[in-house]
Amino acid sequence: MSDKEAAARLLRNARREMLLILGVTALALVWTVGYCFLHGYQHAPDSWVVQSGLASTRSAEDLQQIAGLPDWVFVGIVLPWLMCTAFSIGVCLGLKDDDLGKEAASTQGAAHGH
């Protein structure tokens, strides 16, 4: 493979990875912030989220624990965190290595001791 082709391949792969990562970040944001807001926040009974049935009012007595954590922390944060970690490792194992190219002579000769 020529240097130019290797560079073009890296650009294509890096672009795809960037879009994938931005997508995963958006998904994690919606899950984490969305779930925690709906299930981990104390809402007033007349708030729109309660009125629309998306969330319930939560009192101190309602708190459930999963593995010592409040239920909303486990489902809204720890679970997606574990999934993101698994996904990151999967992505890293699945990614192909690209040739980063050769180091060009620095723009300034002095930097290389000329």
Binding site: A14, R15, M18, I21, A28, T32, P80, W81, C92, D98
Partner: peptide, 22 residues
């Protein structure tokens, strides 16, 4: 504060892979 810090779940991906290679 767990929600405050939660986005570190994607931190390694955004910190390293978002623009690292390129």
């Amino acid at each position: 504060m767990a929600l405050w810090i939660a986005s570190y779940m994607v931190g390694p991906l955004t910190g390293m892979t978002l623009m690292g290679k390129r």
